[in-house]
Design a protein around this nucleic acid. Structure first.
Lengths: 144, 144
DNA sequence: ACTTGACCTAAAGTAAGGTTTAGGTCTTAT
DNA sequence: ATAAGACCTAAACCTTACTTTAGGTCAAGT
């Protein structure tokens, strides 16, 4: 059993955020003693799931939907699985997109390294769009 | 030269967004004839850069900063390079985090596959936290 | 002449996900 | 016994990146 302050430190989340989650109904079984919240493993696991689903790009209201399915028991297994399948596909796609973005950023870093060395962008512009050094060309192509 | 409606179609961006970007100062050289905006290649290239930097997770105000640096010329190469270096590190970190999230989602998919097959979560809970099937254990460990 | 359609402005409104404020209780250390 | 420190609530407020609203100009088609 932990107080809200302890949980705040453990999860690096502001106390106000924990109270906000509570108000939104994410801890249906949270125990109170004399109006003070006590978080058990149950709530910590809920928090881990919230963080994970948030990181996966799910909105708060959809995370709440998931929690409601959990309280419905085994009849919602299929719905919950579908939620995770969709998230899985979305996260895979997002990683792919970010890798493209990363290639662009790596290209830009090379670009400015070169521009700094040359004092201008003339030599780079002469190489664009397909006479870049081999490795750089690879990045450029990946990003476009 | 394109009207705002044409640009809106070309970039799949609402007209209101283009006007908003203009108001924010992203098109310092935009030409107006009798109060009507005319977008030239100059502005289209600016739009491409905005889209690109937005995708890398940069906020609008930082993109604007970048545009200001560009107008300053070669004296801002180093600042611009630092911007991209920071973004590069941030995107790398984000990909790493998303891969962890993906492991969690893959674990959850297995979890619900199994729960659906069994009709309950008892067998899974008996395996947790370290007697899961080898591949699944790997996902679980990566995610935690 | 008049309606339609594309353009314009300033300013208010929106959604998400919290955060801050103002005011209060309860326990513990000095 | 009083002040500090951790907890509480309800409600107002915040930020970002737009979007919507309300009201208006102007050219072309019917």
């Amino acid at each position: 059993m932990y107080t809200i302050g302890q949980v705040s430190e453990m999860f690096h989340l502001p106390i106000s955020t924990l109270r906000y989650y509570d108000k939104e109904g994410f801890f249906p079984n949270l125990v109170r003693k004399g109006n003070i919240r006590y978080f058990s493993d149950n709530e910590l696991e809920a928090l881990r799931i919230i963080e994970c689903l948030k990181q996966s790009g799910l909105e708060i209201k959809d995370i709440k939907q998931f929690f409601e399915w959990v309280t419905e028991g085994s009849s919602s297994y299929t719905k919950r699985k579908e939620l995770f399948e969709h998230r899985k596909a979305a996260v895979k796609e997002e990683i792919k997109q970010l890798e493209k973005t990363l290639a662009m950023l790596e290209f830009k870093c090379w670009y400015y390294d070169t521009a700094i060395a040359d004092g201008n962008e003339d030599r780079i512009n002469a190489m664009l769009p397909d006479n870049l050094p081999k490795d750089v060309q690879k990045l450029y192509n990946k990003a476009h």
